[in-house]
Design a protein around this nucleic acid. Structure first.
Length: 123
DNA sequence: CATATGGCTCAAC
DNA sequence: TGTTGAGCCATAT
Protein backbone atom coordinates (compact mmCIF):
# COMPACT_ATOMS: atom_id res chain seq x y z
CA UNK A 1 0.00 0.00 0.00
CA UNK A 2 1.76 2.90 -1.23
CA UNK A 3 1.65 6.23 0.46
CA UNK A 4 -1.25 7.26 -1.62
CA UNK A 5 -1.93 10.89 -1.99
CA UNK A 6 -5.26 12.00 -0.69
CA UNK A 7 -7.58 13.13 -3.42
CA UNK A 8 -6.90 11.54 -6.77
CA UNK A 9 -6.36 14.69 -8.76
CA UNK A 10 -3.69 15.73 -11.17
CA UNK A 11 -1.38 13.04 -9.94
CA UNK A 12 -3.53 10.39 -11.48
CA UNK A 13 -3.26 12.13 -14.77
CA UNK A 14 0.49 12.30 -14.44
CA UNK A 15 0.73 8.59 -13.92
CA UNK A 16 -1.62 7.96 -16.78
CA UNK A 17 0.62 9.94 -19.09
CA UNK A 18 3.82 8.34 -17.87
CA UNK A 19 2.32 4.93 -18.28
CA UNK A 20 1.61 5.75 -21.90
CA UNK A 21 5.25 6.34 -22.68
CA UNK A 22 6.27 3.52 -25.01
CA UNK A 23 9.34 1.46 -24.34
CA UNK A 24 12.56 2.92 -25.62
CA UNK A 25 11.10 6.40 -25.49
CA UNK A 26 11.47 9.20 -22.97
CA UNK A 27 9.56 12.30 -22.01
CA UNK A 28 10.43 15.45 -20.11
CA UNK A 29 8.78 16.65 -16.94
CA UNK A 30 7.44 19.65 -18.75
CA UNK A 31 6.03 17.44 -21.44
CA UNK A 32 4.29 15.22 -18.92
CA UNK A 33 2.93 18.25 -17.16
CA UNK A 34 1.66 19.61 -20.41
CA UNK A 35 -0.05 16.38 -21.39
CA UNK A 36 -1.50 15.99 -17.93
CA UNK A 37 -2.99 19.44 -18.14
CA UNK A 38 -0.53 20.83 -15.63
CA UNK A 39 1.08 23.17 -18.06
CA UNK A 40 4.00 24.96 -16.57
CA UNK A 41 4.08 22.92 -13.39
CA UNK A 42 6.79 20.50 -14.44
CA UNK A 43 8.21 20.48 -10.98
CA UNK A 44 5.17 18.97 -9.43
CA UNK A 45 5.38 16.16 -11.93
CA UNK A 46 8.74 15.19 -10.55
CA UNK A 47 7.44 15.69 -7.07
CA UNK A 48 4.56 13.38 -7.69
CA UNK A 49 7.03 10.63 -8.45
CA UNK A 50 9.45 11.23 -5.67
CA UNK A 51 6.87 11.40 -2.95
CA UNK A 52 4.80 8.49 -4.10
CA UNK A 53 7.57 6.08 -5.07
CA UNK A 54 5.47 4.61 -7.81
CA UNK A 55 4.84 1.08 -8.82
CA UNK A 56 4.06 0.01 -12.34
CA UNK A 57 4.84 3.44 -13.67
CA UNK A 58 7.90 3.75 -15.88
CA UNK A 59 9.24 6.76 -14.00
CA UNK A 60 12.63 6.03 -15.46
CA UNK A 61 11.36 7.23 -18.81
CA UNK A 62 10.95 10.70 -17.43
CA UNK A 63 13.96 12.98 -17.68
CA UNK A 64 14.51 16.71 -17.61
CA UNK A 65 14.42 18.99 -20.62
CA UNK A 66 18.14 18.63 -21.20
CA UNK A 67 17.69 14.93 -21.76
CA UNK A 68 19.65 14.28 -18.64
CA UNK A 69 18.79 12.41 -15.49
CA UNK A 70 18.47 14.78 -12.61
CA UNK A 71 20.06 13.85 -9.33
CA UNK A 72 17.39 12.54 -7.00
CA UNK A 73 17.22 12.34 -3.27
CA UNK A 74 18.32 8.72 -3.12
CA UNK A 75 22.01 7.94 -3.57
CA UNK A 76 22.71 6.07 -6.79
CA UNK A 77 19.10 6.36 -7.82
CA UNK A 78 19.93 8.26 -10.94
CA UNK A 79 22.28 5.48 -11.87
CA UNK A 80 19.45 3.00 -11.68
CA UNK A 81 17.32 5.13 -13.95
CA UNK A 82 20.06 5.27 -16.51
CA UNK A 83 20.49 1.52 -16.51
CA UNK A 84 16.78 1.01 -16.91
CA UNK A 85 16.81 3.25 -19.95
CA UNK A 86 19.85 1.60 -21.43
CA UNK A 87 18.07 -1.66 -21.02
CA UNK A 88 15.33 -0.32 -23.26
CA UNK A 89 17.79 0.62 -25.93
CA UNK A 90 18.48 4.20 -24.95
CA UNK A 91 22.09 5.24 -25.16
CA UNK A 92 23.84 7.99 -23.26
CA UNK A 93 26.73 10.14 -24.33
CA UNK A 94 29.84 11.13 -22.43
CA UNK A 95 27.91 13.88 -20.73
CA UNK A 96 25.38 11.37 -19.39
CA UNK A 97 22.76 12.73 -21.69
CA UNK A 98 20.54 11.08 -24.24
CA UNK A 99 19.59 12.48 -27.59
CA UNK A 100 16.21 13.95 -26.79
CA UNK A 101 15.64 14.79 -30.42
CA UNK A 102 15.77 11.10 -31.14
CA UNK A 103 14.20 9.49 -28.09
CA UNK A 104 11.54 11.99 -27.13
CA UNK A 105 8.07 10.53 -27.10
CA UNK A 106 5.55 12.28 -29.31
CA UNK A 107 1.93 11.68 -28.35
CA UNK A 108 -0.95 12.77 -30.50
CA UNK A 109 -2.01 15.82 -28.56
CA UNK A 110 -5.24 16.11 -30.49
CA UNK A 111 -7.23 19.20 -29.81
CA UNK A 112 -5.19 20.06 -26.76
CA UNK A 113 -4.58 23.77 -26.29
CA UNK A 114 -0.99 24.87 -26.33
CA UNK A 115 0.58 25.78 -23.06
CA UNK A 116 0.86 29.42 -22.40
CA UNK A 117 4.33 30.89 -22.24
CA UNK A 118 5.39 32.21 -18.92
CA UNK A 119 5.67 35.91 -18.58
CA UNK A 120 9.36 36.53 -18.69
CA UNK A 121 10.76 39.29 -16.59
CA UNK A 122 11.56 42.30 -18.68
CA UNK A 123 15.21 43.01 -18.74
C1' DC B 1 -0.05 30.26 8.78
C1' DA B 2 5.04 31.38 7.26
C1' DT B 3 9.48 29.64 5.39
C1' DA B 4 12.38 26.77 2.98
C1' DT B 5 13.48 23.55 -0.39
C1' DG B 6 12.96 21.04 -4.61
C1' DG B 7 13.89 14.47 -9.80
C1' DC B 8 11.78 21.85 -13.54
C1' DT B 9 11.88 25.22 -17.44
C1' DC B 10 12.84 29.12 -20.36
C1' DA B 11 15.44 33.02 -21.92
C1' DA B 12 19.55 35.59 -21.94
C1' DC B 13 24.81 35.93 -21.21
C1' DT C 1 28.43 24.27 -23.27
C1' DG C 2 27.49 25.96 -18.95
C1' DT C 3 25.81 29.62 -15.79
C1' DT C 4 22.52 32.94 -13.99
C1' DG C 5 18.05 34.79 -12.88
C1' DA C 6 13.23 34.54 -12.28
C1' DG C 7 8.75 32.11 -12.19
C1' DC C 8 5.81 28.22 -10.58
C1' DC C 9 3.65 25.58 -6.78
C1' DA C 10 3.34 21.14 -3.84
C1' DT C 11 5.62 19.00 0.38
C1' DA C 12 7.94 19.38 4.54
C1' DT C 13 8.90 21.73 9.05
Amino acid sequence: MATVKPSGDPYDRIYAVVRRIPRGRVATYGQIADLAGLDGRARQVGYAMRTLAIEGVPWHRVVNSRGQISARAEPGGDRVQRQLLEREGVTFDAADRLELAHYRWRPKMDGRPSRRPRAQASL
